[in-house]
């Protein structure tokens, strides 16, 4: 189904769901408290049935003091894409885990935790993924400085 119909259908599922502007596909934005129920409905209900969580990542809006979490969903049955975004504050950033809905979320959330420092409530195994366990700081945050990062002159 096309972008507007999809967005309308998704926004009808949750009261606090709004349209996300400036995206190149159907995109909605939810507050973090409504994220998990919405995702559950997106996976289970039939005209949607998003069974493939393509990707989960985060964007650091340092000037607004937010992390924006981005979930890219795809349905292999119907062939439509959806982008779900969710904003959480930069201090004390905690989000619910989706690893019981899509098992791949376990792995993707560990990457976001490793690089951004976003904690996932209820995650079975929250550990650093790429960096050593003792690494200080979260590299992909915008204010991250490291004496080892070399800048060209």
């Amino acid at each position: 189904m096309d972008t507007e119909a999809l967005e309308k259908l998704v926004m009808g599922l949750e009261a606090q769901c709004r349209k996300r502007e400036q995206a190149d596909r159907a995109a909605v934005d939810v507050p973090v408290s409504a994220l998990e129920p919405l995702m559950r409905k997106l996976r289970n209900e039939d005209p949607l049935s998003f069974d493939l969580l393509l990707d989960h990542t985060a964007i650091d809006h340092i000037h607004e003091g937010l992390f924006e979490m981005v979930y890219l969903l795809y349905s292999t049955r119907h062939g439509h894409h959806l982008m779900v975004t969710c904003e959480i504050p930069r201090m004390d950033s905690i989000a619910p885990t989706l690893s019981d809905l899509w098992p791949i979320a376990h792995w993707q959330e560990r990457e976001v935790f490793d690089l951004f420092g976003i904690g996932y409530d209820g995650h079975p195994d929250l550990r650093r993924l790429f960096l050593e366990d003792g690494w200080k700081g979260y590299p992909l945050r915008k204010g991250y400085t490291d004496p080892d990062m070399l800048e060209p002159a």
Partner: peptide, 21 residues
């Protein structure tokens, strides 16, 4: 332009997606 863009491609191993904000 300002916004979120996503494009994907079928590589030899799977779907490579590129997300640009």
């Amino acid at each position: 332009p300002k916004g979120r863009f996503y494009g994907q491609l079928e590589t030899a191993r799977g779907v490579l997606g590129v997300f640009i904000y």
